[in-house]
Design a protein around this nucleic acid. Structure first.
Length: 274
DNA sequence: GTGCTTGTTGGCCA
DNA sequence: GTGGCCAACAAGCA
């Protein structure tokens, strides 16, 4: 399920392993998640290291180990992190497991759209530093959004919201949530938005990120079974997959279609194509 | 069996 | 070179 807030949610699952030594590394060598990553080297270089810290940016996670080693994880479509008891035996889709004295830190990914990478150096790897500025940072300005919409003027706004180079961390459900709140039809050409609509889109993009993150932050170290449980009922998200789901604001039946190559849900009462 | 699925990439074409 | 579209990747679920 990994989008912005969910990535943060999964990062926290490995918090019990911080400050502790990796006694053994177990990998599914040859699994697609390791494309471009040498699993022998990964095993060799992380065994005996201490997991020092972790952070998230967009849909990416970065774990810092002693000795200047960095592990990048992208959860793809179906990736998850879990913390299991020491001595845990990896299951079919557990492609990477760090054994510690107290815990086993598990990365599982049935569909294997996720990706693991290893880097060495005193600072974060180059790919991490090149990520687009976060949506909740100062650099995410309404002007930057307007310029991006102008360049992508022919594409449906839904497809543009999924572009990570400007909207890092936004995924399919967040894009639908943003458009629903901004009252914009997902098929609207990006270049057709007025200045007011562009500002509304910018504001709602930030709001959805802030609310989604707030739903999982400030809850201490409690990790729930699923993030969905913390999303309020007045979000589109809670209704988008229900058969005969209704818009939580208007009560009108929600529509679904393929837009920008992805299943898209919208409320015809709020979001009209002009 | 069919037809979906919260992501990304590379190839094709205008 | 840029922008837009689509198939491919893989496994599970209804």
């Amino acid at each position: 399920m990994p989008e912005l807030a969910e990535v943060e949610f999964y990062r926290k699952r490995w918090i019990p392993g911080l400050g502790r030594r990796i006694q053994a590394v177990k990998v599914h060598a040859g699994a697609r998640v390791f494309r471009g990553c040498n699993t022998d080297r990964l095993t060799r270089e992380l065994t005996g290291r201490i997991l020092l810290s972790s952070s998230t940016a967009a849909k990416q996670m970065l774990f810092r180990f002693s000795g200047g080693r960095w592990l990048g994880i992208h959860l793809g479509m179906s990736g998850e992190l879990r913390c299991e008891p020491a001595g845990y035996v990896p299951q079919k889709h557990d492609h990477l497991v760090f054994s510690q004295r107290e815990h086993s830190l598990v990365f599982e990914d049935p569909r294997m759209f996720g990706r693991i990478s290893l880097a060495a150096g005193s600072g974060p790897p180059a790919w991490w530093r090149r990520l687009a500025p976060p949506i909740l940072s100062e650099a995410f300005t309404v002007e930057a959004v307007a310029e991006f919409l102008r360049r992508r003027r022919g594409a449906p706004i839904k497809a543009v919201l999924l572009m990570q180079q400007r909207f890092p961390g936004i995924g399919n459900w967040m894009a639908d949530e943003i458009l629903w709140r901004a009252a914009l039809h997902p098929r609207c050409p990006a270049g057709s938005l007025t200045a007011v609509e562009t500002r509304t889109l910018w504001r709602e993009t930030r709001r959805v990120c802030r609310l989604a993150l707030a739903a999982i932050a400030g809850r201490g170290k409690v990790v729930p079974p699923a993030l969905n449980a913390w999303i309020p009922d007045n979000w589109l998200f809670k209704h988008r997959w229900e058969d005969g789901g209704r818009c939580p604001r208007t009560g009108v039946k929600l529509m679904r279609a393929q837009i920008g190559g992805r299943t898209t849900c919208w409320s015809p009462a709020r979001q009209k194509l002009r």
